[in-house]
Design a protein around this nucleic acid. Sequence first.
DNA 1: CTCGTGTTTTCCACATTGTGAAAAACCTTT
DNA 2: AAAGGTTTTTCACAATGTGGAAAACACGAG
Lengths: 261, 261
Amino acid sequence: MKSPKDGVQSVSRALILLQELARSDDGLRVSDLARTTGLAVSTAHRLLTTLEQHGFAQFEPETTLWHVGREAYAVGSAFGRRRNFVAPALPFLKRLRDVTRETANLGILDGNQLVTISQVESREIMRAISNPGGQVPVFCSGMGKAIVATWTDEDIKALAERAGLPPMTSKSLRSMDEVFVDIHRTRERGYALDDEEHVTGLRCVAAEVWSPQGEAVCAISVSGLAARLTDARLDSIGQQIRKAANELTQQLGGTPQNHSR
Amino acid sequence: MKSPKDGVQSVSRALILLQELARSDDGLRVSDLARTTGLAVSTAHRLLTTLEQHGFAQFEPETTLWHVGREAYAVGSAFGRRRNFVAPALPFLKRLRDVTRETANLGILDGNQLVTISQVESREIMRAISNPGGQVPVFCSGMGKAIVATWTDEDIKALAERAGLPPMTSKSLRSMDEVFVDIHRTRERGYALDDEEHVTGLRCVAAEVWSPQGEAVCAISVSGLAARLTDARLDSIGQQIRKAANELTQQLGGTPQNHSR
DNA sequence: CTCGTGTTTTCCACATTGTGAAAAACCTTT
DNA sequence: AAAGGTTTTTCACAATGTGGAAAACACGAG
């Protein structure tokens, strides 16, 4: 009967209680919890009070109902804080790589730069262009523009002023006007485009991913040689990225917002 | 040595490990955790694997680091769900963030502490100050004071005695007299102010939100560097928060009461 | 007011369960 | 190949968690 590999019994039970609590919206009584988890009432009670002492559970004396506590919230939100979208994003990146045969990327905004967090490489000959961890000026990056396009115009302006518009190539956006034209097109299209604005010969199509808070947290993109990412393919790829970004958003517990503002 | 009333030892320890994990943004090793919590390495390891089996902790083999797991997030968000004003509040927070360009927060009173439930970050460079789930002594917090100002003087006194007046900074309220002076000003103004009373260099403007039962259930606030939240801007921002809080109240089916009592 | 039935909470003897020292299995690094 | 640093596993022991039963509440009905 004793299974050596189930971990610590009492801890397991306490966690199961927590999950049970989370399942219910308006609280549970000790005896209910004991029944649904198959524990003795006294045991359930003991575990619950332990959880309560640490703030993971909350007891309402007037109604004698148990709820999930603030500390559970605090600890849980640490999970959200962490860049934990990289793992769930991987399958999506892989699929994008497979259908487009180009490199797929995941990036976040860090300060004034866009940094590539994760990347699934194309299998073509010319592939690794920007390596993971690499930083790119926001407005020279498809992913950067995808994220920024969800912001208000004032915020975008402020960021552009802070970050500047370094001319990486001859096609880089050079003026505030050009930026806003591009952002508008991005919002209309539903995906962002970097047409050799960062590196000559390199194109990139990107869409943003939303957090449960309703903010654009990161973006995914497909990048490859302009010679291969032809105008003809561009929109089809754009749609696919948009779709993948929405699905990833959903999986992260967010809802895709509308791009237009 | 055996203290009968500290609950179940192993569960306590597991929870402490979780909190420790939450504290760190980029993961911890077993041995670090063991040291900081004072547990034997093997014990820590056993507890962690138990947490992992239930998804509350996450282990990255390649880097041998432990993180908070998805299940902790799932359970924690049940806490937010119960406080069902967090979703409707989001648009208001976003708007506040957009017009003030500072961080907007939503907080509730939990026991003697004010806990930040939700937050929409400013896009300026210096932003994340307190993370969601964080706790602050009531009287060092704009949101805390906004809520408390709706109470009777006796209730306030009782709370202050229970919770104490921890001097977080040199500007923190230190005496019952100072508390009541501040509360009076808050009631007159219609919004509460935290002028570097929690963290030096940080200001915060807040107003309370009413439930249909006619109780102040939560508060919203805007916080930012004192250097940016200048005296000149303060009143204008205060008015805007007051307005947003009233609108949110309305949307929740409550009616904004009058602050004076 | 008293009894009855539903709770939650406390107690306690017992052995199941969790414990930590130490050893084993892994890694990198030199 | 050896030396430090890890993470895992093992194991003998007793401290720790267990659940039945009893006590303390809380409410409604008679």
